[in-house]
Design a protein around this nucleic acid. Structure first.
Lengths: 233, 233
DNA sequence: ACACTCAAAATTGTATACAAGATAGCATGC
DNA sequence: GCATGCTATCTTGTATACAATTTTGAGTGT
């Protein structure tokens, strides 16, 4: 069941698990046991353990000694923290990217935008196509960070995005506000292509703040609804 | 030889190794083998492997499949990247800290400053005492990040500081410029205690830039000297 | 003296066996 | 009916055996 037989089993187990968590196939709060995963992937527990270690370091699962691992659940405050950091890092990365982007880089960004528009324009599109659009939108930020040239910055931003992504998949997917992000993405790419670092940075920071407000509002509403249900029962 | 028998061997191996790397006992570029560490710590290879996985995720060691692990060597560009990120994160953390610090927090910061001054004032001090002052100076930043209340921010900053620390120990130790940092630290703590978030942030960012310039100048000089030696031979 | 080949040693990757601790369920006593 | 304690089971923690791969070094041929 391992997607691709890479160099080591540990790596492919890690990739498989990470993909399953990030896409929400294994939802937050799920208990994951070494034996189950090992059996499912037809490997021994050893590579699974090592994959778990790395995932724990990534913050995707949390484990307490001798009590097993659980897919990390984000609460509202963790989201607030994550977006606060993203505003700093993403803003800076976008500034840098605008300053150093080559023509090839710019073409790459425009291609992602085009793909987003194409997916958005499909009438009566499937869930899968919605997923793809969201994925591409997140990827835009990853690519911008990569273009910035600061490898460490790129790595840290990817880490944060991974951690938040499964919530985007499962929650944000149904929000119409997403089309706002589409416009903002286009503006950011414009600024980068124009080489206007300052404007690109400002737009990126505003974009992250906007996303944060949307996500937090949704989570708050959900939390309120759940406590309402709890009180009613 | 494991310093403290904690809950799990993996954790104590991780702590021991991390301490040895961060303090420079195992210098950057050293090859570390599982068997050696396992023998040295009187444990089997299994917990050592898991510790290595975590250390690799921390960026303290780098390993290629079937080729073993090496304590990560920082080149100049990696330092530049790290300090660029620190300027963002440290600046923001300091702003936050100034906004939310309680009296207890402020006392904690002042205590660290006092300790630094005490250690700095010792005449003919030992290397150990110099170490302790540097350690305290770095700890100040960790505590500020903790006071900020953003747990993720604190974690990320600690990660960066850990990665750079062994260089501070082995290189920066001999720089007189360190006493500049002492004054700047005092100013930052002053601003935090005064609740002046904007000033605290500005000072912190300038401080990180200053540290960066010092470190980069030193590393550049060292690199130049080494290429001079190479040419001469 | 140099290069190439092959084998042996060292090192990591994986599997499995066993130990220790935690959880859950059942039985027992009140 | 409820609480408490025990046991059985499940899960992780550790050690060790074995497989696979890389590196190193000796030896041979030119």
């Amino acid at each position: 069941m391992a997607k691709e037989t890479k160099n080591t089993l540990r790596d492919s187990v890690y990739s498989s698990l990470k993909a399953m968590i990030v896409t929400g196939q294994i939802p937050p709060g799920s208990r994951v046991t070494e034996s189950d995963i090992a059996a499912k992937l037809n490997v021994s527990r050893t590579p699974v353990r090592e994959a778990f270690n790395r995932l724990e370091r990534d913050g995707l699962v949390t484990g307490r000694p001798r009590q097993g691992y659980v897919v990390t659940e984000f609460d509202i405050s963790m989201f607030r923290e994550a977006f606060e950091i993203r505003e700093l890092l993403d803003g800076h990365a976008t500034e840098l990217a605008a300053a150093v982007a080559t023509e090839q880089d710019k073409a790459r960004l425009r291609a992602i935008l085009t793909e987003c528009e194409r997916l958005a324009a499909i009438p009566d599109r499937t869930t899968r196509e919605k997923f793809q659009e969201l994925e591409a939108g997140i990827d835009l930020h990853r690519v911008i960070a990569q273009i910035s040239g600061n490898v460490m910055l790129h790595g840290m931003l990817c880490g944060i995005l991974d951690k938040c992504q499964h919530y985007v998949w499962t929650e944000l997917l149904w929000l119409d506000e997403w089309k706002i992000a589409r416009d903002e993405h286009a503006e950011i790419v414009d600024a980068i292509c124009a080489g206007d670092a300052s404007r690109a940075g400002t737009l990126a920071r505003a974009h992250v703040r906007g996303s944060r407000d949307n996500v937090l509002r949704l989570l708050q509403a959900k939390s309120d609804y759940q406590s309402f249900l709890a009180k009613a029962s």
